[in-house]
């Protein structure tokens, strides 16, 4: 019994220290306003308020396919991926609320694949992923010790609280996709599930209230996208008076599925991501809504982040 009591005390002290270190190492920028666990849960809160031009919301197709740092490097626009594996539309709506509270982007892209995922089909890792992200900030930010310890040392590779991927995940594997006729014509419409349609309407409302243009986008995806889903998404976009961009029919980005997918056509790899990122950059440029901020001192941290991003990619 004595040992049991001691064990409990050990665990309690452990958690106190765990929270203390987590607090210390979590980015401090918005911590007062949003709290440690919320910042850990939504990476976007690491960014300074009202500094983002556009945001992309979606699932793994987004964090694999759109690299905000490439857009920054080539166009000077500030973009952020708010995406997680097997994202559900309810959680995407929550992300929307968080985004809108801290940022005023002019455009928000929304990945169409999320529309077809139903809450009842939540994958097993979903809850674990959420818990891990939210309640173990120290795991994510542990390397920030470099900011605090030996700070007088001027080293060449500075890790910092700076987010240098901006939601993107660099994966440079290649596994060719073979289902080349995945967008074969059909007149069958795969309707977006009713509950998801309702949530999507709420997102549209929120965007209108905040004067943000919402764009539905279906990024290249050989495995789970098809013509029926395209028709269903198009229908939903028309019902809600939202722009819809499909990047699958006719392969407008000229994705080479032999070399530009990391897992047999499901996700793009880094090479494929360069094409999609450039497309987004070009799209934003064509709107004439944004300035190139690469030489703007207020955004110097983005140039710093790009240098680290490049360095990290080269090492992998």
């Amino acid at each position: 019994m004595k040992n049991f009591g001691k064990s409990i005390l050990f665990v309690i002290i452990f958690f106190v220290l765990f929270v203390a270190f987590s607090f210390l190492l979590t980015p401090q920028e918005n911590i007062k306003k949003y709290g440690m666990f919320k910042i850990s849960s939504y990476e976007i809160l690491e960014e300074k308020e009202n500094t983002l031009d556009a945001i992309v919301i979606g699932d793994s197709l987004i964090y694999s396919g759109i690299s905000p740092m490439e857009i920054w490097h080539n166009y000077g626009y500030t973009v952020f991926d708010v995406a997680k594996s097997a994202e559900l539309i309810d959680d995407a709506y929550k992300s929307f609320e968080v985004v809108i509270a801290s940022q005023h982007p002019k455009i928000i892209f929304f990945e169409g694949n999320v529309l077809y995922r139903e809450s009842k089909n939540k994958p097993w890792f979903y809850v674990y992923q959420e818990l891990y992200k939210t309640y173990f900030p120290i795991i994510k930010y542990h390397n920030n010790w470099k900011k605090y310890l030996f700070s007088s040392l001027n080293d060449s590779l500075e890790y910092s609280r700076l987010n240098f991927y901006k939601g993107f995940k660099y994966i440079n594997k290649t596994a060719p996709g073979k289902k080349l006729n995945y967008m074969e014509y059909t007149d069958k419409i795969k309707k977006v599930p009713r509950e998801n349609q309702e949530t999507f309407a709420k997102i549209v409302d929120l965007c209108q209230k905040n004067d943000v243009e919402l764009i539905l986008i279906s990024t290249p995806n050989m495995k789970s996208w098809n013509y029926s889903k395209y028709l269903g998404t198009k229908e939903l976009a028309e019902q809600n008076n939202v722009i819809y961009i499909d990047l699958n029919i006719g392969n407008p980005l000229k994705i080479d599925w032999k070399t530009e997918s990391r897992d047999g056509g499901n996700h793009l790899n880094y090479k494929g991501a360069l094409k999609l990122s450039n497309y987004i950059g070009e799209y934003l440029k064509d709107t004439n809504l944004f300035k190139d901020k690469r030489n703007d001192k207020a955004y110097a941290s983005w140039n710093e982040a790009y240098a680290i991003y490049k360095d990290m990619n080269n090492k992998q």
Binding site: L17, I138, H142, N143, W145
Partner: peptide, 17 residues
């Protein structure tokens, strides 16, 4: 023990980079 545990968590070489 805490020193050992937290040195692994904080100084461990895992995650980005």
């Amino acid at each position: 023990f805490y020193l050992l545990i937290f040195s692994i968590i904080i100084f461990g070489a895992y995650g980005d980079g």
